[in-house]
Structure formats: C-alpha cells, structure tokens
Simulated assay, not measured.
Amino acid sequence: METHIITITYRECAAVYGLSETDLREFTEFGLVQRAEAPDTILAEPDHLARLARLQHDLGLSPEGVDIVLAMRQRLLSLQAELQRQQARAAQLERLLGGSAPTFDID
C-alpha cells in the first residue's frame, strides 16, 4: 500500500478539510501532523487529514481526544495484523501436519 504525503498550507487545509490554523497547530503539538519546512505548512496524508477533520467536526473531539482515538485505531490495526499472522501460522502448521494429528475446536 503506497503512502501519498502532501505538503499543504494552513489556508489550503482550512479550505479543503475545514481545519483551522489553531487546530493544525494543536495537532502538530500532539504529533498528529508534521510541520513542513516552509512556514505555515504541514506534511500529511490526505486520508489522515480527512480523518482528523471527521473526528473533530463530526464527533466534536478535542485534539487530546483525537490523539487517543488515533492511538486506539493504530493499536487495533496492529492487533488485526498480528491476528492475520497467527492465523497464517496456524494454517501452515495444519498443512504441515497434513491431518495426521487430531484437531480440537476451542470455543
């Protein structure tokens, strides 16, 4: 999956995503977006900016709340990836055993 990082000014971000300069400054303080080299610009993925805007506007979350939700989302994504890895390992083990061992259904 490719990541597309854009450089966007605070003004452009306000027009496109509805995030004010104050919001963006708070988000950079929390590390939710990265400052770019040019003044009053940030580096971010468009999907990430849209997610920030939805969390703030639709749910009315503060920057601290947005930070918590995004941390929980990241944890969920890592747990899902680990579950997929473990399922693949279990399937590999089952293929290796070739049905020669008894299987148990665990509820």
Rank of each mutant, 00 (worst) to 15 (best):
V33W: 01
F27E: 01
Y17H: 13
S20I: 08
T9Y: 04
P46M: 02
M72E: 13
G60N: 06
L52C: 08
E37K: 08
Y17D: 00
Q34G: 00
Y17V: 06
R89Q: 15
Y10N: 03
I68H: 11
R25Y: 00
D107K: 07
G60F: 04
R54Q: 11
L32I: 08
Y17S: 08
A71F: 05
L70W: 10
L59F: 03
I106W: 11
L49R: 08
L52T: 08
R51L: 13
E82C: 07
T41P: 02
A90N: 04
M72Q: 13
I42W: 02
L19A: 00
T28M: 14
G18D: 02
R11C: 06
L79N: 04
Q74R: 15
A81V: 08
G99A: 04
L76C: 08
G31W: 02
D58R: 14
I68Q: 10
D105L: 12
T41Y: 07
F30A: 03
Q86F: 08
G60T: 07
G31A: 05
R75I: 05
L49G: 02
P46Q: 03
G18T: 10
A71K: 15
Q87T: 03
R85A: 15
A71H: 12
R35N: 10
L43Y: 07
F27W: 05
R25D: 09
L83K: 15
H48L: 09
I5G: 00
Q56F: 00
D23F: 00
T7I: 12
I68K: 09
G98Q: 04
A44S: 13
L32H: 01
R54F: 11
M1V: 10
G98Y: 03
L43V: 09
R25P: 06
E94C: 05
D107V: 12
L79P: 07
E21W: 04
A15E: 15
I42L: 15
A38S: 14
L76F: 11
E2Y: 07
E82P: 03
L97N: 10
L19P: 11
Q92E: 14
E2T: 14
D40I: 07
L93G: 04
I42H: 05
F27P: 01
D107Q: 09
P102L: 12
Q92P: 01
D67P: 00
G31T: 04
V33N: 01
T103V: 13
E29A: 14
Q87G: 02
E29W: 05
I106N: 05
R54D: 14
M1Y: 06
R51Y: 06
I68D: 08
Y17W: 05
V66W: 03
E82W: 03
F27N: 01
R11D: 10
L19W: 01
E12W: 07
I8P: 01
A38H: 09
I68W: 09
T3L: 12
A50F: 06
E21T: 04
A50L: 11
Q74E: 15
I8N: 06
E2M: 09
T22P: 03
S100D: 09
E12I: 04
H48K: 14
I106K: 05
L96Q: 10
Q34L: 12
P102H: 11
D47W: 04
L43C: 12
Q87Y: 00
A81I: 06
L83Q: 14
A36Y: 00
G99N: 10
A101Y: 08
L19I: 03
